[in-house]
Design a protein around this nucleic acid. Structure first.
Lengths: 338, 338
DNA sequence: CTGAAAGCGCTAACAA
DNA sequence: TTGTTAGCGCTTTCAG
């Protein structure tokens, strides 16, 4: 592929290449007519600036690295869309990498992206992990980084998070108010900060309603369907079923309901179930699944905006942005008629 | 961020920068010891090659542009993973863009990526559309492109597709064999080639089984849940329900089942339903959803492999690769016990 | 307002 | 086996 360069235009117009360059970068003085002439012929010749060359001499790539745990999931896919909404119109390209929920892969991805000279990074870590130290070092070296979602509380950096504690509280309180007395939380891995926060909210609801500890339990399952099936089967076998399950996500919730139904246990009459990180399927399920909707698009947008803030000002202060989710109550957790 | 360059190393070692360059690109002659010395000090100084500079003088970016219709969906997410599996180990970076199922956005994305000097493109078009002409022109100009999935049959280029016709045939025949006589297809938009192919297979099954035309119908719904709900509600109202629905995807299938259930119509006893492009939720649904599993990861891998073939050889011939999907029969389409 | 020229960091002939 | 040199396409300072 052969591209037209500023030199071609300069020759054709018998001017210097600097003038051509200037015509494309308004910031320099240049006579209006020459500018317009240059732009016109450039268009005719099918010229567009070579971004690589630009990057080399400007020392800026206009590439932003984004790392997410996995994207077989609406949650992160939507965050990415939010990020692009802000970044693309500003001329930034997003380089996307996924870490497969593996901290080592995650670290490697970060290194790859930095070596590829991204101007900044948005990291959605897969869990609290030993990488944070490395990330902070890069931050201090001047590489702008914004963190999203699963972030250790202590991390001193700009971060976008959800009010998971509150959401955990609301979801639990809703179950309590529906008359589900004994509630088990299929929590997901507790090495993930958001999970720990939801657990905090979960416990707080019981404290508020003065319900004794024997009435609840936190079961640390994974985030996958088959793990939930195993746990619920086990509880049925041990005859230790609660009145309701508060699940780490919709997949786990559906797996739980599926298993209960198989044993002729009715949801929501016998047992209530609530999911998290609402999926499209929630309202198509039978019973329609109650779930928590996080502001995923907005999380992405905020992350991008914050990154731009840091990009434009080295000295910008770290900020923590907390966004609000929404509890969508549907059939799976309501005994009363809605 | 300040980077170490080959000149820094050359100065330190009192050699020429070409030698340093050579040390990092095995292909040139260089004495083993100098090479090792260079590599060692480079490491000490924290040097890594500046990819931008490399790109500028090599006229190769090692970036591959990938465009997909949307990625709120396992299908394309998995294709991307497949692509990365092949491309990343070979040193290629994937630039991802989504077209939001909009041909104009799609065309714009392609242009952006080309201007960003990608070495090649993998395009998963959102539908048959007027852009094909432009893509072909770029192909002829020497920009390697591989097409995936929704591709007009006539397109003369390298493409990766699924045996949608066969899959449509098998799914339909399965329904017929289960004793569902009258079958409606909620087909999805017919400006998408894969949909047209499934329709072909659908019709063929009826021909084979000598079932008259009155027994089937193709209803061109969209790909979203609410559209399916409307259609099914309408059929119920008109008392024109078939014995089975063959749906364009799992979301549509679940929406159909949901609607039927609401009206106390039993699936699979009264009406059978089958989905397409199997999701994780399929086996968690009640009834468990029969669906067609496409080899998504493999589609991505093949696309990447074919692109590399074209990258390495300008004159490589166009190839069409057809991959086989799998019909997963579950409860929603079986009257007999499985 | 415009041109000349240096340089971004690297590769790849060509010499030596 | 190594050094010299001329670019890749663009920006940006310095003269004019």
């Amino acid at each position: 592929m052969q591209y037209v360069t500023i030199i071609d235009i300069a020759k054709k117009l018998n001017i210097s290449k600097s003038s051509v360059s200037r015509a494309f970068n308004n910031k320099y003085d240049i006579k209006k007519e020459t500018r317009e002439l240059i732009l016109k012929t450039a268009k005719e010749m099918g010229y567009f600036p070579n971004p690589i060359a630009k990057k080399l001499c400007q020392k800026k790539t206009f590439n932003i690295g984004v790392i997410i745990p996995e994207f077989i999931n609406d949650f992160h896919a939507e965050i990415i869309i939010g990020i692009q909404r802000i970044l693309n119109p500003k001329g930034y390209q997003v380089l996307l990498m996924q870490s497969d929920n593996n901290p080592d892969v995650e670290l490697n991805n970060v290194k790859t992206l930095i070596q590829n000279m991204v101007d900044g990074l948005i990291i959605a870590p897969c869990s609290d992990n030993g990488n944070m130290e490395y990330y902070l070092k890069e931050l201090q070296k001047g590489c702008p980084i914004v963190f999203v979602n699963r972030i250790p509380e202590s991390l001193n950096a700009t971060k976008i998070i959800c009010d998971d504690e509150k959401l955990g509280f609301f979801a639990t309180e809703h179950l309590i108010r529906e008359g589900y007395a004994k509630i088990y939380m299929l929590s997901g891995p507790t090495n993930i900060s958001v999970i720990r926060n939801r657990i905090k909210g979960f416990k707080q609801a019981f404290r508020k309603h003065k319900i004794p500890k024997e009435q609840y339990q936190i079961i640390e399952t994974g985030l996958l369907a088959h793990e939930a099936v195993e746990v619920v089967e086990d509880l049925i076998y041990k005859q230790d079923l609660p009145d309701a399950f508060f699940c780490s996500n919709d997949l786990v919730a559906m797996a739980a309901i599926k298993t209960l139904k198989k044993h002729n246990i009715k949801v929501p009459q016998d047992i209530g179930v609530i999911g998290f990180s609402e999926t499209q399927m929630a309202r198509l399920y039978d019973p329609q699944l109650s779930s928590v909707r996080q502001p995923t698009y907005e999380m992405g947008e905020k992350a991008a905006e914050q990154l731009i803030r840091h990009l434009e000002d080295d000295k910008a202060e770290y900020k923590t942005i907390v966004l609000n989710g929404l509890l969508n109550i549907r059939e799976s957790s309501t005994r009363t008629i809605i």
